[in-house]
């Protein structure tokens, strides 16, 4: 793992991967979108309104996956003082926050015609909202210090605490929800989904993941360049 702590070596590999992920994301996005919006059959109950699922569900999946990247990167950064892991965690956080915001907004837009209201205090919605706050807290703490390295490590500790806490929060919100409203109306579409709807969903999920990897690599590259510049500046003035 420490072989990739060398920013130059990492950058070489990242530079080799990035064009492919970017290209695939750009190429597959229209395919997935057309498949999802035009080709896939309409739902017998929700007709065409369900199609927002093809944005909503991948965004929700990515919001959780990205927090794992942030938390995992923070753990590696704290345990092994791995500089690139810290940069990766920091670079992933705003992406994850955006995915979470997209999941919340599209869910709200979907909820209006389906349940007749913009927001329901459902267990899943509530825990996604809490996840959004965790992202914001991480980002805010990262930038709260004059000394950037202190902010980075403080934020890493927070991300780890959040990682431990997320299952507890999820469990407690589920418990709270079953306590307050026994039957949930929000079963997405019953137990199973026909393959004609599932395939475009999986393709969209893949596109979202490719997009996330591309943007993450760009952000890591920017962040390393920024650190190098400030290090050079520091050496100049010293």
């Amino acid at each position: 793992m420490h072989a990739y702590a060398n920013p130059l070596r990492f950058q070489r590999i990242a530079d080799a991967i990035r064009p492919w992920t970017t290209f695939l994301a750009l190429a597959l996005f229209p395919v997935g979108l057309v498949w999802a919006l035009a080709v896939a059959p309409a739902d017998y109950q929700q007709s065409d309104a369900y199609r927002i699922m093809y944005v909503h569900v991948p965004a929700a999946w990515m919001s959780m996956f990205t927090y794992l990247v942030v938390g995992g990167g923070s753990a590696v950064a704290l345990i092994w003082r791995h500089p690139l892991a810290e940069i990766a965690a920091r670079a992933a956080a705003p992406i994850g926050a955006c995915f979470t915001a997209i999941a919340l907004v599209t869910g709200s837009i979907w909820g209006k015609p389906m349940w007749g209201t913009w927001w329901v205090w459902d267990a899943r919605l509530t825990s996604v909202l809490i996840l959004f706050f965790l992202y914001l807290g991480y980002i805010a703490l990262y930038d709260a210090f004059e000394d950037a390295s202190r902010g980075a490590r403080a934020a890493s500790i927070l991300a780890l605490v959040g990682l431990v806490n997320i299952p507890i929060v999820k469990f407690s919100v589920d418990w709270w929800n079953t306590l307050h409203q026994p039957s949930s109306v929000l079963r997405m579409d019953g137990p199973s989904m026909p393959p004609s709807m599932l395939w475009p969903l999986l393709l969209m999920a893949l596109v979202f993941k490719l997009y996330m990897v591309s943007v993450l690599l760009v952000r890591i590259r920017t962040e390393t360049a920024e650190r190098r510049i400030s290090a050079l500046r520091g050496a100049e003035t010293a």
């Binding site: 805010a140 929060v169 418990w175």
Partner: peptide, 16 residues
Amino acid sequence: LTALLVLPLQIPALIF
């Protein structure tokens, strides 16, 4: 900012 960091983590205690 402290509240933003801490409140989401305190939710389980509140719920139970």
